[in-house]
C-alpha cells in the first residue's frame, strides 16, 4: 500500500522568506496525524501545497502518488482555516452545492450530523455564531468519503465542550482506511485521538513520530511539545 502523502525536499519561499525548507515526510494510510507547531511555523503552507493552492518553489509533494491537482481533489477533503462559504446561503443549499461538486459527498451523513449537533439546515450561515459556522464546515468536510482529510485548525474557534463534540464527530465518521491530518496548536485537546504527530518549526520538520513511541518514554505529546518549542 502506497503512502497517502509524501514530501521530498519540499521547499516554499515567499519572496526571500522560506516558509517551508527541505521537508521530507511520509504519511501512511489509516492514521490520524497531528501537524503541530507554533504560529507561523509552516503548517498552513504545507496544507495549501497539498491542495494545489500553492506550488512548491522546489522539491515535490505527492498525494497517493499524484501531484496535487484535479486528480487529488477527488480524494482529498479540505477544511481551510477560513470560512469560504457564502454567508447568504442556507445550510441546505450548501449541502446541495457539495453534492454537485463532490462525487463522494454523502448528504445523509451531513444531515445526520447536523441533527446531532442541533443545527437547523434551513438556517442561513450569516445568522450563525462563529462556532456554529465552524461546525457546519467541519460537517461538510467530514461527510465526504475521502482518502485524505486535511483539517486546518478545526477546533480553534469553539469552546472546550464543543471541541469534544467535534472530535467525537471526527472519530465517529472516520473510516479506518483514511488518513486525517489535523493542524493545531491545541495539543492536549486532540492528543488522545492522534496516533502520529509531526512537529514543525520555522518551516522544518523537527519530529515525526508515533504517539505511543512518545508515551513509551513517559512523556505526553503536550509535554514534549513544550520541551521542543520552549521559548
Amino acid at each position: 500500500m502506497n503512502a497517502i502523502l509524501e514530501c521530498k525536499g519540499l521547499t516554499k519561499s515567499y519572496g526571500g522568506k522560506k516558509a517551508l525548507s527541505d521537508v521530507n515526510l511520509t504519511i501512511e494510510r489509516g492514521r490520524i496525524v497531528g501537524l503541530l507547531g507554533p504560529n507561523g511555523s509552516g503548517k498552513t503552507t504545507l496544507i495549501k501545497l497539498a491542495n494545489a493552492l500553492l506550488t512548491p518553489t522546489s522539491g515535490e509533494i505527492r498525494i497517493a502518488g499524484m501531484k496535487p491537482g484535479t486528480g487529488t481533489k477527488k480524494i482529498v477533503s479540505y477544511l481551510p482555516e477560513r470560512n469560504y462559504l457564502n454567508d447568504w446561503m442556507r445550510v441546505h443549499d450548501i449541502i446541495g452545492l457539495f453534492r454537485d461538486f463532490y462525487g463522494d459527498f454523502r448528504p445523509d451523513k451531513a444531515y445526520d450530523m447536523l441533527k446531532r449537533l442541533n443545527i437547523n439546515p434551513n438556517d442561513k450561515l450569516k445568522t450563525m455564531s462563529k462556532g456554529t459556522k465552524e461546525k457546519v464546515q467541519l460537517i461538510l468536510v467530514m461527510s465526504r468519503e475521502a482518502e485524505l482529510y486535511l483539517l486546518d485548525e478545526p477546533i480553534g474557534g469553539v469552546d472546550p465542550a464543543a471541541r469534544d463534540y467535534i472530535l467525537e464527530t471526527i472519530i465517529s465518521n472516520y473510516n479506518p482506511e483514511a488518513t486525517i491530518i489535523i493542524s493545531t496548536h491545541l495539543i492536549s485537546d486532540v492528543e488522545k485521538i492522534l496516533d502520529h504527530v509531526i512537529f514543525i518549526r520555522e518551516g522544518q520538520v523537527v519530529l515525526s513520530s508515533s504517539v505511543d513511541e512518545i508515551r513509551e518514554q513517559g512523556k505526553s505529546v503536550d509535554g514534549l511539545f513544550r520541551e521542543v518549542f520552549r521559548c
Binding site: 469534544d164 472516520y174 488522545k192 496516533d195
Partner: peptide, 11 residues
Amino acid sequence: LAREASVNPNT
C-alpha cells in the same frame, strides 16, 4: 468503544 473513550478507532 472508540467514541466512548474518544480515541482513534484504529487504536
